[in-house]
Design a protein around this nucleic acid. Sequence first.
DNA 1: GTTGCATTCGCAAGTGGTTGCAATAATTCT
DNA 2: AGAATTATTGCAACCACTTGCGAATGCAAC
Lengths: 146, 146
Amino acid sequence: MSCHEILQEKGHRLTLQRMLVIEALHNAVRHISAEEIYEELHRRHPYANISTVYRTLELLKELELVTETDFGEGRVRYHVAEKGHHHHLVCHSCGRVADLEETALHPLKEGLLDEYGFVADLRHLAISGRCNECRSGHETEPKLRY
Amino acid sequence: MSCHEILQEKGHRLTLQRMLVIEALHNAVRHISAEEIYEELHRRHPYANISTVYRTLELLKELELVTETDFGEGRVRYHVAEKGHHHHLVCHSCGRVADLEETALHPLKEGLLDEYGFVADLRHLAISGRCNECRSGHETEPKLRY
DNA sequence: GTTGCATTCGCAAGTGGTTGCAATAATTCT
DNA sequence: AGAATTATTGCAACCACTTGCGAATGCAAC
Ligand SMILES: [Mn+2]
Ligand SMILES: [Mn+2]
Ligand SMILES: [Zn+2]
Ligand SMILES: [Zn+2]
């Protein structure tokens, strides 16, 4: 079911602002920031305010329609949930961002459940560290791809 | 070796401001915020500015003398590394904060190293989710203990 | 269509944290 | 000790994000 439908079904209004935020999220190639979403929104609706972007993102997060990920940039990035749940390995040395299957964290999730009865909420995580390329001395140019 | 000694050894100056920040960190019972550190600093050095607190914390993080943890409060908390490295389970339902042995994340760390050659930097993590008490319906009063 | 009510929005102010810059303080050199 | 050099600080402005509030909007009842 689409974001639009879920929003309406739960009794939220499908305003132009919200539709444009959702569209920006869907059009994003990878992970998009609030500021980038706002740029899209502002182009087509100049009176819109960035606080509406943040409020819409908050709502979409609550409904689990988007995930929020902190890549350590000083700003956070968003991704529509229906495009898939994966995690990331962020190298603090070269800046490279690698994808990590969601299943890579299943053992941890199960361990916390078995030993602590704790249901961990691990979605769209960014784990920082040092990547294989940097460790083996092949210092390549940092290519940030969020 | 103490924070003071390591700081000086690496050629950093041991100013009154820095000593008071370090003292506040050491006196803290659990995890202390920048604002709380600043209150201590300001009491004994009224001209000091909070940006000095942030800059000192930044320096101590780089030297791996303190760890930073985001408990999801909207502000971040600090802990001197020599008091021990543990992680936390934060319940988003009741607010309870439980300690998690560092070893609980060792399997993940090893898995990432073996399969991706990635050396993950997992220190003083806060994992959010739903705790055992909340899951079993015994809704107790939320006791935040950072 | 008009009225009434709840939701959403724009705006401005606030929060936690960072940064550029000029003044100050510590360290090194003479 | 005094001068030159460098690190550190205080201050103000800024950044990402949040929030209170009054105005606008959407929606349902008449
Ligand atoms: Mn992703
Ligand atoms: Mn801790
Ligand atoms: Zn790397
Ligand atoms: Zn709980």
